[in-house]
């Protein structure tokens, strides 16, 4: 079947199988930032935005993206790099495999919550697993990133 969606701001047409998952479609379209880390919707690595809402692309049929707006990390590279520099400054980028999903959710949180407290941040991002950092460095980076924006 054929679908049309807005992918990172541009119209994208694709021929897909009805059972194709959005994750696999996005990778086949060159959005390699989208990673698979589990098969049970637990890890958050595959997070993209669907109409601006952070979504697990492993759990959405590509067919459902028809007529919708999909954003991957490739579509917000500048912002990703700005926040990513904070991650790296803490050494918290580490293996980097969970970074795209985390960054997508952090940027979504920034749009959704106003001045979130640390506990709110933890709760918002609880679905983004990381095995390298124990989260502490990530949390420092997020806090500094949000504060910098506040001060600016």
């Amino acid at each position: 079947m054929n679908i049309e969606m807005t992918l990172n701001g541009k119209l994208a047409k694709a021929e897909i199988e009805p059972g194709t998952l959005l994750l696999d479609l996005l990778r086949s379209l060159g959005c390699y930032s989208v990673k698979r880390g589990c098969e049970t919707s637990n890890c958050g690595l595959c997070t993209v935005w669907m109409d601006g809402v952070p979504t697990l692309s492993c759990s959405v049929l590509a067919a459902r993206a028809d007529g919708h707006e999909i954003t991957t990390l490739e579509g917000v590279r500048e912002e990703a790099e700005a926040f990513g520099a904070f991650l790296a400054a803490e050494g918290a980028d580490q293996c980097g495999f969970c970074s795209p999903g985390l960054i997508m959710n952090v940027l979504a949180m920034e749009r959704e919550l106003e001045s979130p407290a640390m506990d709110e941040i933890r709760e918002y991002l609880a679905g983004n697993l990381c095995r390298c950092t124990g989260y502490a460095g990530q949390m420092r980076a997020i806090e500094k990133y949000l504060n910098r924006k506040k001060e600016a």
């Binding site: 919707s41 958050g44 809402v53 952070p54 959405v60 991002l125 609880a126 679905g127």
Partner: peptide
């Protein structure tokens, strides 16, 4: 709901 996996999961 708040303890169900994560925000993205609950969005879906």
């Amino acid at each position: 709901t708040r303890h169900i996996v994560g925000t993205q999961f609950r969005n879906g």
